[in-house]
Computed example of a mutant assay.
Amino acid sequence: MDTLHVIILALIQGLTEFLPISSSGHLVLAAPLFGWQDQGLSFDVAVNTGSLLAMAIYFRQEIWQMTQAWTTSLITRKQTPDSKLAWWIVLATLPAVIFGYFGMDFIKTHFRNIETIAATTIVFGLLLWWADKVSKHQLDEYQTGWKKALLIGFAQMLALIPGTSRSGATMTAGLLLGLTREAAVRFSFLMSIPVGLGAAILVTKDLISSPEAIDVQALTIGTIVSFIAAYACIHYFLKVIGKMGMTPFVIYRLLLGVALCGLIFFG
């Protein structure tokens, strides 16, 4: 991989991982557009690690508060808003972990194709638009409750299907359950940390047993670029989402879906 190749893929990963626009759709489209081959497992680990670090550092204060409160709740059995939120994040993570463990091979075999990604990019984009329109926009993340958290977790489980967009699915569920845009985004972002960490561990495990050669320079550049892009994306997305709404991302998803359909029929 040359440096430009590395930077473009890392930017795609960092900018699309947390926006509701499907990172897998962009990565699938990038290969035929630029004539690139698959970037390899080690690069996937690197750019995902960069994005995960950006999320963890941006929300470091919230993570620290929730971790402290959650640990204290285990000892004292007393719950605070931060400990409840931590428990809800754990609960929301379980459906994706369980379904991913038992169903990932099936998904890779039957759904990891451009036709699926084009369809899910469009369908879940329209669902996001509908959710944003009908939502009451009343609750913050501390008012989620365990039932709503579990439902958002099931939405995250569906996002294992390529093209759905993990952030898009969880934000859609959050909005339908009455969360404000900002709360739906924050809850979705916080959910991404345990899921991203688990995925990184699994992929790293596969990488260790893989004969793939490792380009240290490419991995270093990819990690740094992905980190910077993801951090900037998180910061500005949280600032504008309350006023901007989800419609621009829905329009973008529809255009991306059409582009993928064009690739299917004319590529």
Rank of each mutant, 00 (worst) to 15 (best):
A31M: 11
Y101G: 09
F187K: 03
M171L: 09
F187H: 06
T144Y: 11
R77C: 02
S73V: 00
I114W: 09
V28A: 12
K136L: 14
P248Q: 03
G198E: 11
V97I: 15
F237Y: 13
K108G: 13
S22W: 00
I12Y: 04
R77E: 08
L9C: 09
I201A: 15
I122W: 02
M1K: 07
L160K: 03
A149C: 14
L127R: 05
S209L: 09
T247M: 15
F106L: 14
A131E: 00
S209V: 13
A131L: 01
G35V: 00
L207Q: 14
L19T: 02
Q79V: 09
I117Y: 04
D44I: 06
A96I: 06
S73G: 13
V45Y: 13
A184Y: 03
I264R: 06
L41A: 07
A213Q: 15
K133I: 08
Q65Y: 06
I264G: 07
L260N: 13
F59Q: 01
I57Q: 13
P211G: 12
L33W: 07
W64K: 13
D215I: 10
S192A: 15
A131W: 00
I107Q: 09
D215Y: 05
I201Y: 10
T220F: 12
R166E: 05
G257D: 01
S210L: 14
I12T: 07
T220K: 12
V123D: 11
G50T: 02
E141V: 11
T164W: 03
A131T: 00
P95F: 09
P248R: 06
L41E: 03
L151V: 11
V134F: 04
L176A: 15
L175E: 01
Q79F: 13
E62A: 14
S192G: 15
P20A: 10
K148C: 07
I57D: 06
A10S: 12
D38G: 08
Q13P: 01
Q37K: 11
S22R: 10
M191Y: 08
C233V: 02
G100L: 15
R181P: 00
S210C: 09
A10F: 09
S210M: 14
F237V: 05
G178M: 05
S23P: 00
D140H: 06
A213N: 05
L179E: 02
L179D: 01
Y101P: 04
K243E: 08
D82F: 11
